[in-house]
Structure formats: structure tokens, C-alpha cells
């Protein structure tokens, strides 16, 4: 007999995370929930006297399959957000009624059967191996072939042949100039701005800041500082002692982080 505690633990550990399949927004959350379901199922297997299968479940599903899912999620971008509005008319109702219908039908049948379980045969590796390499040895071999085929198939599927000729560096450059880009490198941030910090834009010959010299990420985070603003900041914090310090290092109190452009606006 299986202990009821184990059953209820397993039931909660599987059904609740499984519901995230229906309600969670982010795919990564769902994947982690399914990992939880897989672990719960492994526990169920152990509880059902199939310890070998429980271990295999952990290794194959949580260890390999779900990690593969996560890899692919990362590959296609975790920000692949899903529009939750239903596009197909009636699809929600169909899903609800079919899923509910299947559950209802199966449970109604299962609730009416009464079975007396036989004495357990523990599925340890040795026992499993005897059955696997005994009666099912042919299936086993065929499945081996299937796995090889699947691996090769995945290789073929994800292999993309080069359809266009390889572009040389000069061609890339020519295309870029044609597209109206700067013929030369973008200026580095901080150049001619009296400061070489990454968040300070460079200056053009007229002294105007070149906005695009600062990384796009800093700009998006509103962490870019203006050159003029930085100069005044520098002058404000300068004190006579500065000149006395060796190497012109700023004094200790100047480490206090000053609010950057944009941060003040947010506040």
C-alpha cells in the first residue's frame, strides 16, 4: 500500500505546478513548474515501488528534457511574450469542455472500479533489466535505432545551409556606407569630454555632445550623463586639496554617488 501522505504530497506537488501551464505568463516560470511536476512524479514512482523508474525520471526529464526546453527558451529569447487574448473563436470553451470531459469520463470510470492490488514487485534495476532484455529486447533495439534517428533528424533540422554568398569585409563596409551610416567608427564615449567615463557622450568639433557615442543600454536606462552637467559637478566637488593630493585623485567624500540625468526625473 502506498501511504496517503505520499499521495497527497505528490498530488499537490504535481497538480498545482501543472496549472501554471494554463495560467502562468512567462515560459521560464512554466518550465520550472514542470520541473517541479517531474520531480513530484519521480517521487510517485518511488512510492509505487518503481525506484529505478523514479531515478530515470529525474535524470531524463528534469535533467535532460526540461533543461533542453530551457536551452531552447533561452535560444529563442526569454522575452517571447505571449498575447493572452484568444484569437480563435470558441477555442477556450472547446479546450475547457474537452479537457474537463476527458477528466470527467476517466475519473467516473476509475471511481467505479474496485481492485485489490497484488503484492508489489519492486522495480529495481536488476528486475527491470531482466524484463527489458528478456521479453522486450527487440523493442529495446528498435528504440535505440529511433533515438539515433532522432538525433540525426535534429541535426538535419537545425542545420541551415548557406544560401547567400559569404560577404567580405569590404562588401559589408560598402553596404553600410550606402545605407547612410558613418563611414568611420563611432566615436568612443568621453572623447574630448574631459572625462572618459562610459556614460559621458563624446564631443564633436563644435563642442556639442554626440549622443550615440554612449551605449544604447545606458541610454535606455537613463544612466547617461551630460558633459556640461558633469563638468559643473566636477567643479562643485573640487576643493583646494585636490591639487595637493598626489596623482590628482578625488577626495574620499567625492565618492558619494551623485544623481545622474534622468534619475532625478524619476524621483
Amino acid at each position: 500500500m502506498v501511504s496517503p501522505v505520499l499521495f497527497w504530497v505528490v498530488a499537490i506537488l504535481t497538480v498545482v505546478p501543472a496549472l501554471s501551464l494554463l495560467f502562468a505568463r512567462k515560459a521560464v516560470h512554466i518550465a520550472m513548474s514542470i520541473v517541479c511536476v517531474m520531480v513530484g512524479l519521480a517521487a510517485a514512482y518511488v512510492g509505487l515501488d518503481a525506484p529505478f523508474l523514479g531515478v530515470v525520471q529525474i535524470v531524463v526529464y528534469t535533467g535532460a528534457v526540461m533543461m533542453l526546453f530551457l536551452f531552447v527558451l533561452m535560444l529563442v529569447g526569454v522575452d517571447q511574450r505571449e498575447d493572452t487574448r484568444e484569437t480563435i473563436k470558441g477555442q477556450r470553451w472547446i479546450a475547457f469542455f474537452t479537457a474537463g470531459g476527458i477528466a470527467f469520463l476517466l475519473i467516473s470510470v476509475l471511481g467505479r472500479v474496485s481492485i485489490a492490488p497484488q503484492a508489489a514487485r519492486v522495480g529495481n534495476p536488476e528486475e527491470i533489466a531482466l524484463v527489458l532484455f528478456g521479453r522486450y529486447v527487440l523493442v529495446m533495439e528498435v528504440l535505440g535505432a529511433l533515438l539515433i534517428t532522432a538525433a540525426v533528424g535534429a541535426l538535419i533540422m537545425t542545420h541551415t545551409p548557406r544560401l547567400t554568398p559569404r560577404r567580405t569585409q569590404s562588401e559589408v563596409q560598402a553596404a553600410r556606407v550606402l545605407a547612410g551610416a558613418d563611414p568611420v567608427n563611432k566615436p568612443m564615449p568621453g572623447v574630448f569630454a574631459r572625462h572618459n567615463a562610459l556614460d559621458v557622450p563624446a564631443r564633436d568639433p563644435e563642442g556639442k555632445p554626440i549622443e550615440h557615442s554612449v551605449s544604447r543600454v545606458l541610454e535606455a536606462r537613463h544612466q547617461m550623463s551630460d558633459g556640461d552637467e558633469f563638468r559643473t559637478r566636477l567643479e562643485n566637488t573640487s576643493n583646494p586639496e585636490d591639487s595637493q593630493l598626489p596623482n590628482g585623485a578625488p577626495s574620499a567624500d567625492s565618492d558619494e554617488r551623485t544623481p545622474r540625468i534622468g534619475e532625478e526625473d524619476q524621483k
Binding site: A18, I102, G111
Partner: peptide, 13 residues
């Protein structure tokens, strides 16, 4: 029964 419930959740997904 638990398997049936999980199955219908999966199919709904």
C-alpha cells in the same frame, strides 16, 4: 485518477 487530471491539464494547455 491523478494521471487523468494531469492529462487533462496538459491537453488544455
Amino acid at each position: 485518477i491523478l494521471a487523468a487530471i494531469l492529462f487533462s491539464i496538459g491537453s488544455a494547455a
